Amino acid sequence: MRNISEARPLRGKVALVTGGARGLGLETSRQLARKGAHVMIAARDISRAEAAAESLLSEGLHVSTLRLEVTSVADHQTAYAAIERLHERLDILVNNAGILVDGGAGALAPDQPPSDAHPRTVRDIVDVNFFAPVLLTQTLLPLIKRSEAGRIVNVSSIRGSLSHMSDASSPIYRNRTLGYNASKAALNAFTILLAEELRDTAIKVNAIHPGWLRTDMGGKEADMSVEEGAEIAVHYASLPEDGPSGGFFFGEDRLPW
């Protein structure tokens, strides 16, 4: 991964980070706020979101909380109403919330082959990792269109790359988690199609692979810190006018679909 370059400051920008109360979401919220954004920490557990916000407020950062169950269409509408009432627009949306429940943590290969994947498990993962960010983005897009330069960052994974899934030399080749891989591949497709739809606007839409991170999901053996992963998310949330859109990135490296 090449080092990511300095992006634009975010003073006065309004950002929403889903799954923002812990792990990558919390650190992304922190780094966005340090760049000057007002960050809404969205999480289904409001008490956890409030605890996270309190820690960032103690650092002098501008944050607030929003209860958001990402699979709830009613919560999407409530979020829209709250953002419109308080801020009138949304400059940055980081679709970070996600689950991995059909395999081992991090880079560990699952014991269950795709042919034995349980349909309920696959549906649950796709609901959270794909349908939730799609429906939330659709709901909030009118607010993003009010921004001078809206940014949408979809937190994907290299495990959503069809090229890597089919390449025996890839480090993720043995990760055959059907639900997770398929959900991230679908999220990548949404990224491409939405970016193409918005190509004549000031909105930029990108998918990122934040790396294998030392989080509850990634496990203790992961090779990157949560701070390093958040730097990637923040970079694409703060792209300048001439930045890319419709890409899939790890740092500044463009990944194959």
Rank of each mutant, 00 (worst) to 15 (best):
R2N: 13
I4F: 05
I4N: 11
I4C: 02
S5C: 09
S5R: 09
E6V: 07
E6N: 03
A7P: 08
A7S: 15
R11A: 13
V14Y: 00
T18S: 10
T18C: 03
L24I: 02
L26F: 14
L26R: 07
L26S: 06
R30V: 08
L32M: 09
R34H: 06
K35V: 05
G36I: 03
H38F: 10
H38W: 10
A42W: 05
A42R: 08
A43M: 06
R44A: 07
A49G: 12
A49Y: 04
E50N: 10
A52V: 11
A52C: 13
A52L: 12
A53M: 01
H62A: 15
L66E: 08
L66C: 09
R67L: 11
E69C: 13
S72G: 06
S72L: 14
D75P: 06
Q77G: 02
Y80I: 02
A81N: 09
R85S: 14
R89A: 03
L90G: 03
D91A: 04
L93A: 01
V94M: 10
V94K: 04
N95V: 02
N96E: 14
L100D: 12
V101S: 14
V101Q: 14
V101A: 12
V101M: 07
G103F: 00
G103P: 03
G106I: 00
G106C: 09
L108E: 14
A109Q: 11
P110K: 05
P113S: 12
A117D: 10
H118E: 13
H118W: 03
R120C: 11
R123I: 12
V126A: 09
V128M: 04
F130E: 00
V134P: 00
V134D: 00
L136N: 08
T137V: 05
L143K: 00
I144Y: 03
N154T: 05
N154G: 06
S157R: 01
S163C: 13
M165N: 12
A168G: 14
S170E: 05
I172E: 05
N175W: 00
T177A: 14
T177N: 11
Y180H: 08
N181W: 11
S183L: 04
S183N: 11
K184E: 06
A185G: 13
L187Q: 05
N188Q: 15
N188C: 02
A189F: 12
T191I: 01
I192N: 04
E196H: 13
E196K: 02
E196R: 14
E196Y: 14
E197C: 12
R199G: 01
D200T: 14
I203R: 01
K204L: 05
V205A: 04
N206W: 00
A207P: 02
H209G: 03
G211R: 04
L213I: 11
R214E: 02
A222W: 05
D223Q: 15
V226L: 05
A233C: 15
V234A: 11
L239V: 01
P244S: 03
G246P: 07
G247V: 03
G247D: 00
G247W: 07
F248D: 11
F248G: 00
F250L: 13
F250M: 15
G251E: 09
D253I: 05
D253N: 10
L255C: 08
P256M: 13
